Simulated assay, not measured.
Amino acid sequence: MSARAQTTSQKVSGSPSTGNEAIVVENFKKRYGSNEVIKDLSFSVRQGEVFALLGPNGAGKTTTVETLEGYRKADAGTIRVLGLDPIHEAQVLKPRLGVMLQQDGLYPALTAREVLELFAGYFAQPRNVTDLLELVGLANAQKTRCRRLSGGQKRRLALALALVGNPELIFMDEPTAGMDPQARLATWGIIRDLKASGVTILLTTHYMDEAERLADRIAIIDHGELIKLDTPANITGVQNANVVRFVAPAGLDCARLASLPSASKAQEIRPGSYLLETKEGQEVPQLIVELTTWLRDQHITLSELRTGHGSLEDLFLRLTGSEVRD
């Protein structure tokens, strides 16, 4: 049985209601024609936390987030955002939300400042536009028309637009995609500051290190189902066994690797990247000796070797598979 099948053979449920949730999703279902995109999804997001919703392409993330934002209607189940129905109470809810879309949809002929001023006019108590431009690092580009902004600058402007209304809850879809390393770190700092001020953030990202560093809790969904929900520390420690990760030529015989005396399991989690788990009671150093000896005897070059518990990316690939999806 595959890792994903083993995981989903038992129902994974979201956290029980405690009365301080910013988002509550219960038994959510959504279908497009004969395609059941969301099967029976339940989870909650606590007020003031950073919550990462992860999954491969086609897992149902976008449908879930768009339903929470009020752009799609659930076929079944209960959806509550800040205690309100996103469809029927949208007029009250939307001023309290910030949305950072993956597709920016900015006005190409307007400058960065003009776009921010336009959106600021929609809110009763917006943030200062000059301060926002400085915060996201666009002060020097404020007079640049949106069509001439770089991809990273457009993402930073999208972040400023999500913040302009002083939201209580922010949805961030791939917040640092296309950003350079400096802008990415600055955005992480902004997210941490927002959390410290009590703002709730739900983010989707394909950067596993981003989710691991920023999120208080992580939910992984696939094929419209919740397959894992926990803190980053707990979610990466579910394997319990110590692991050895190494990089070598693709296509090694994992059955032979798993037959090493100290190994319990071997997997090529992506081409050329392997993960070995120790047997219970066995030590990692002994497994390393066995592995390197076997590689030497097979005349196989080892280019990278790491030890410790598996990473979030390792776990994500094991749960959802390594095949590329559209």
Rank of each mutant, 00 (worst) to 15 (best):
M1T: 14
Q6D: 06
T7A: 11
T8P: 02
K11W: 00
G14K: 13
S17P: 10
G19P: 14
N20D: 15
A22W: 09
K30L: 07
V37A: 14
D40R: 09
A52R: 06
L53A: 05
G55Q: 06
P56V: 11
T63F: 11
T64R: 05
E69R: 11
G77K: 08
T78Y: 04
T78E: 11
E89G: 09
L101E: 04
D104R: 12
Y107R: 15
T111H: 14
R113L: 11
L116V: 11
G121F: 08
G121L: 08
L132S: 12
V136H: 08
L138F: 04
Q142S: 13
G151P: 00
G152A: 07
Q153D: 08
R155M: 12
R156T: 12
L157Q: 10
A160H: 09
L161T: 07
D173S: 01
G178T: 10
Q182A: 15
R184H: 14
W188E: 14
W188G: 11
D193N: 12
V199P: 13
A211K: 12
R213D: 08
I218K: 06
H223D: 12
G224I: 03
N234H: 10
N234R: 10
T236F: 01
G237H: 03
N240D: 10
N240W: 06
N240H: 13
A241T: 04
N242F: 07
P249T: 00
A250F: 03
A255C: 04
A255T: 01
L260V: 00
S262I: 00
K265G: 02
K265F: 03
P271T: 07
E277N: 01
E280K: 04
Q286P: 02
E290M: 02
E290G: 02
L291M: 00
T293M: 02
R296A: 05
I300M: 05
E304F: 03
G310P: 04
G310R: 00
E313S: 05
L315I: 13
F316G: 05
R318A: 06
S322C: 03
R325N: 11
D326S: 11
